[in-house]
Amino acid sequence: MDRELRLQSVDRAYRDHADDVYRVAYAILRDPDGAVDATHDAFARAFERWEQYDPDRPLRAWLHGIVAHVALDALRRRRVRQLAAPTLGRIDVARIDGPGAGGDPSLEVIRRQIVDEGLAGLKPDARAAIVLRHYCGYDYAEIAGFLRTSPGNVGSILSRAHATLRERLGAIPPADAPATPPATAREVLR
């Protein structure tokens, strides 16, 4: 393909999918600057490998595969103890009227905050699996391909991650229950 056409194609892909690609990068890296870097590197690689893209398959999935590898590699470049350091995620308070948010809105905010912090505390491959599964909607085989593991292991990783998040969320009542946030949740927010 002509270079100029390729540039235009990747430009279009960037306009359409940059936010989604960034989310996968951020889920893995939990670092906005690093995620931006990984996003642009992913599109640069997409440009270089454009001939390998099969137009019969979703472009989004192809880009997610690239950015997952880029972000996991970037992650591996850091010291392990940096990875273990918890990162407080930002929370979009304005979105508390989202789908499924019933009852006390403050509880829903707390639940999201707990999930965000819970995600930060997971291992990177578990974070990636959670976001690839629940945000991007990939099946286990696709996630296994992205993470270079088996679908069975993806199932195990997801179940363990769910258990961790459930444990954290279990400290507070469901969003539609009128209750005061328990001490454990307030402690998490402090």
């Binding site: 940059a18 989310r23 889920a27 995620g89 948010a101 999201r112 945000y135 998040l165 459930r166």
Partner: peptide, 23 residues
């Protein structure tokens, strides 16, 4: 309370990830 099912977890994850935007 009943344990949180996968659909609820998925919704919470989506809500959280929706807040992540390319700066």
């Amino acid at each position: 309370v009943d344990p949180i099912d996968e659909a609820t977890l998925a919704r919470l994850v989506r809500d959280v990830a929706d807040g992540w935007h390319l700066p």
